[in-house]
Each structure stands twice: as C-alpha cells, then as structure tokens.
Design a protein around this nucleic acid. Sequence first.
DNA 1: GAATCGCATAAGTGTGTGCTTATGTATTTT
DNA 2: AAAATACATAAGCACACACTTATGCGATTC
Lengths: 104, 104
Amino acid sequence: MIEHDIFRALADPTRRTIFEKLANGSMNASTLRQGMDISQPAMSQHLAVLRAAKLVREQKEGRFVNYEVDPDGLALIAQWLAKYRAYWPARIDALKLLLKDMDQ
Amino acid sequence: MIEHDIFRALADPTRRTIFEKLANGSMNASTLRQGMDISQPAMSQHLAVLRAAKLVREQKEGRFVNYEVDPDGLALIAQWLAKYRAYWPARIDALKLLLKDMDQ
DNA sequence: GAATCGCATAAGTGTGTGCTTATGTATTTT
DNA sequence: AAAATACATAAGCACACACTTATGCGATTC
C-alpha cells in the first residue's frame, strides 16, 4: 500500500526536513546532509523510505545520486485529501489561500 | 508541532480506517468499533491521537461521546500540500480531479 | 442505590523504527 | 593501480508505539 508508505514516510520530522530541502532544489545525498547533523547511512536510509513512498526520485550522475521531488507522491496525497472534500467548506478561510495558489 | 501530530496520526492504518468511517458519518466510539476487531481501550487511544491531531473532534452526549471529522486537520494538510504546488503541474491529470472538486 | 453501560486512563509487553558502526560497491582522482 | 569519494547495505541497539489487561469514573437503567 503506497498510501501507507507516504504517511509513514512523512511521520518522521527528519524526512519532512529532507523533503522540504529537496522542494527548494534538487541535490545529491551529501549536499543534502549539510547543516543537518545526520550520519551518511541515516541519510541514505531516509532517502530510501522517501523513494519507496514516491515522494522523491533519484537520478544517478556518475558516483553522485541526485535527488528531486517526485510529483507522484504529492498527487497521491492530493487524491487522498480530495476524498474528504465534503468537510472542507467548514473552513473556507483557510482554504481560500490554497485555492488561490492552485488557480494559476 | 501539530503538523507532526497529523502525519504521525495518519501513519497508522487502523487510525486511517477510523477516520474514513467518521468521514461517512459521525458516530460514538462503540459504534465505531463494530466490524473492526479492536478492543475498547485501543479504540479510545486511537481516538485520542486523532483528536490531538485535530483530525476528529468530540461531542459529549450523556454517557456517549460522539465523534466527527474535524475540518481543521484537513485544512492543515491542504496548507502543507500547498507549499509544494510548484511540483504539481507535472501530474496535471491526477490534479484536475482535485481542482474540479475544490472549485465549488 | 445497585448494577450496567460508555468511555478514559494506567501499567506492562512485544514489535517496529531510527540510529549507530562496520563493510561493500561503483566511480573518480591522482 | 592505488587512494579517495559518494552512496548503499548489514547488523545490533535503544526507544517509540500499538496492543493487552486491569481499573476508574460519570451517566443511565433497573
């Protein structure tokens, strides 16, 4: 179940930080570690979890592995969220912002 | 951090099932248990986690406690998702559905 | 008012998870 | 070709987490 992989992957704060960094630009695993106080194997393991959840994808470049955000994972979250649209109108104010962003 | 509470709450498959059931209509904790093979304390603990994440909210009615979906949690997920809108156009097909739903 | 019901909380237990150190495997550098 | 670099994987460990049984507490029923 990929849906389970996604929520489990995002349940970890370190992985959310990694994902957020990648959202601001692709980079390889070593660069990703900078300023994060995390060991190389730990980073590698986190990236494996994010990859399994289709939240990031890799692109091998020589001995480097460039990581970038995978839109598939985000689309799946959007689909999950869409199932509960019946409950959204109750918080229109918070939603306006989202709608405005999406409408371009 | 409420954002962490949300993803952690949804990381458990049992809690996602509970949330989905409540999305189809409010009910109390006992009714929620029907057909779920889960103990009463386990259900109570799951509901506490979902409550802390603002994914559900309670409404006491005598000795019963009625639970319902809390739009706040969903709105927070929508906000989180909106941060990464830059990566959405790559999967327009999956997104069209979401946009159509939200545009009303 | 005693028993029952709906639910929450406490305490204990097994399993999952994120970390570490150690090692392996390509690829690049010198 | 030897050394260094970038990354992945294996194994072991400490802790978080989802469960259990036991108990408590307010509201209802008899």
